[in-house]
């Protein structure tokens, strides 16, 4: 069953066409990768899905609901979460608060109850804290709950960002270059980790990555973008052997 369907999506910034005729069909439980050279429009695709940009044309549907025109928080509340290419944690807040903030839409109390700290407030707050601490424990961050996010080492910040995204309770997770800045050994761990969270949280994952080891290693399907256009789409083997992809991605010399 298709979870996310994008049809004929087009987006331009002024005169520059960033995404042209983008189509995507993502099935439930799938792990798909988007690759392409710098400036190919990969992150723009994420920004269009999550509502940071509003697509100039076309439609993006999650199950039955049209996402184009929704605000990012509405889309996140419909269970799509993401991480960022350059980590965007709430740097001056605690690790715990980073995860707690991501549960905003799942919090069920009114402003009045919040002002008086009454009614559902206490129960809800306790539930949020417990859920947050469980998540932090899964990501081996529990001992850092009170630490300010900016003080965490790079690897922990990456993990926290994924924990924060999962705190929103997604069924579709978008990972923007999760392996950036990692060495091959760490990438191996990351691959296991991504497979594991997919299993554990029953996720559908769409990821952007430059790191071929990771993309070829875990993605079931790969989409290749260049200049906002789809060059190819298929299994890792098919992509590896596609001459067009080799040319665009690895450069003409590599092919010749």
């Amino acid at each position: 069953m298709a979870l996310l369907i994008a049809t004929k999506v087009r987006h331009h910034f002024g005169g520059l066409c960033a995404i042209n005729d983008f189509n995507l069909e993502l099935h439930q439980g799938e792990l798909m990768g988007i690759i392409g050279p710098n400036g190919a429009g990969k992150t723009t695709v994420f920004n269009l899905i999550t509502g940071v940009y509003r697509a100039s044309e076309g439609s993006i549907r999650l199950r039955e609901s049209e996402l184009v025109g929704m605000t990012p928080h509405q889309i996140t509340a419909r269970r799509i979460a993401r991480t960022f290419q350059n980590i965007r944690l709430f740097r001056d807040l605690s690790v715990l608060d980073n995860v707690r903030i991501a549960q905003y839409s799942k919090t069920r109390y009114s402003p009045l109850e919040a002002l008086l700290h009454l009614g559902r407030f206490r129960r809800e707050e306790q539930r949020i804290i417990e859920h947050s601490r469980d998540l932090l424990a899964i990501f081996k961050l529990e001992h850092l709950a009170g630490e300010t996010a900016r003080n965490l080492p790079y690897g922990s910040q990456r993990r926290l960002e994924i924990a924060r995204a999962l705190a929103t309770g997604p069924e579709l997770l978008l990972l923007d270059e999760p392996a950036a800045g990692m060495n091959p050994a760490e990438i191996d761990q990351l691959m296991d980790f991504i497979r594991w969270i997919r299993e554990q949280f029953q996720l559908t994952i769409l990821l952007i990555e430059h790191q071929m080891q990771l993309v070829m290693g875990i993605c079931e399907r790969i989409k290749v973008l260049d200049f906002g256009e789809t060059l190819a789409e298929g299994t890792p083997e098919a992509i590896r052997n596609d001459p067009w992809v080799m040319k665009a991605y690895l450069g003409a010399e590599a092919v010749g």
């Binding site: 940071v52 928080h73 979460a81 960022f84 965007r88 709430f90 001056d92 549960q103 924060r164």
Partner: peptide, 11 residues
């Protein structure tokens, strides 16, 4: 901290 990130974290 980060308005866009807040929106994307469902705020």
């Amino acid at each position: 901290e980060d308005e866009i990130a807040s929106e994307l974290m469902s705020v």
